[in-house]
């Protein structure tokens, strides 16, 4: 058959390993001190696409919107077996909230053309919003299955998946085209393939150092362009007003460091007597029965 798949991947600051110097004195984030990583659940989305490609055939196109450095995650996609990667990069995309992000990604996906299946991570760890996937689906006017913890069946017309919900799970089926958001439990992402790393590791450097201009287009012959496409607002046919900050209804009003409320604390000595007194006090005050 050959499913046409698109995976959206994001480069994110590693918020799960925030070290002391990642926070400035005034409580704002020192982005420079945070290493960037491949958003974890996007690796699961990519893995699911690659597995489908291996079992039923098809193509996997990865798209990322971000600064030029985001080419790193796209290279990681190539190392794992993606066929095509596209970087959506333009200053005018900066400051995008989820609505403006999903708008830009929707325009890029339409530019790619025909597709059967779009896979996103459930959420990105920088914002933990889980909004971009469903918003892309809405903008493309296609169906969505979120929080997918396993793909259980796939055929030429449809996909069946397990969705993990609060009080159990459900098995749902949708015809193509459909967008899935994939959770960390869906699979074990593969690591980079050494041979592919050799093939691709030097590409993209040029992308990072070259802005998108005519001279760059002249370098068509180089391997870079065969593998990393860089698109801007015009290439994807987007309305600049709906992109970036101007296309974002949500504004950050203020950012504060977390104030930890302290309290009157009583030191209890770690002895039989100390602990017994504590237990008695709690019983007396009806905290425990």
């Amino acid at each position: 058959m050959g499913l046409r798949m698109i995976v959206t991947v994001k480069q994110v600051p590693d918020t799960h390993n925030v070290s002391g110097d990642a926070m400035k004195e005034d409580g704002t984030v020192n982005r420079a001190a945070l290493p960037t990583i491949f958003n974890p659940e996007d690796l699961n989305a990519l893995e699911e696409a690659l597995k489908i490609k291996e079992s039923t055939g098809g193509t996997v196109t990865c798209i990322s919107m971000g600064p030029p450095n985001a080419v790193d995650v796209l290279k990681e996609c190539l190392y794992r077996g993606a066929d095509d990667v596209i970087l959506i990069s333009d200053r005018r995309f900066a400051g995008a909230d989820t609505l403006a992000t999903s708008y830009a990604l929707k325009c890029a996906i339409e530019q790619v053309g025909e597709y059967d299946l779009i896979l996103c991570g459930r959420q990105a760890i920088d914002g933990d919003t889980a909004q971009v996937g469903p918003q892309i689906a809405e903008k493309l006017n296609i169906n969505q299955l979120t929080c997918v913890s396993a793909v259980t069946a796939i055929d030429e017309q449809s996909i069946t998946a397990k969705r993990s919900v609060e009080d159990g799970y459900e098995i749902v089926k949708s015809r193509f085209p459909v967008l899935l958001t994939i959770t960390a439990t869906a699979n074990e992402p593969r690591t980079a393939n050494a041979k592919k790393v050799m093939t691709y590791k030097n590409i993209g450097k040029e992308i990072c150092n070259t802005s998108y201009d005519e001279s760059y287009m002249a370098a068509e012959a180089c391997a870079v362009l065969n593998h990393v496409k860089e698109w801007n607002v015009e290439t994807i046919g987007a309305d600049p007003i709906q992109c970036g900050l101007s296309g974002s209804p949500t504004k950050v009003k203020k950012i504060q460091s977390v104030v930890l409320a302290g309290c009157e604390s009583k030191q209890v000595t770690n002895t039989d007597a100390g602990v017994t007194d504590l237990v008695h006090e709690l019983i007396k005050e009806n905290i425990i029965g």
Binding site: G127, P134, K139
Partner: peptide, 20 residues
């Protein structure tokens, strides 16, 4: 899982802000 599935779709359709 339900709120996080439906709310973004609604926000996208109405082009309004949504904070998770």
């Amino acid at each position: 899982t339900m709120g996080r599935d439906v709310a973004p779709r609604v926000a996208s359709a109405l082009k309004c802000g949504l904070t998770a």
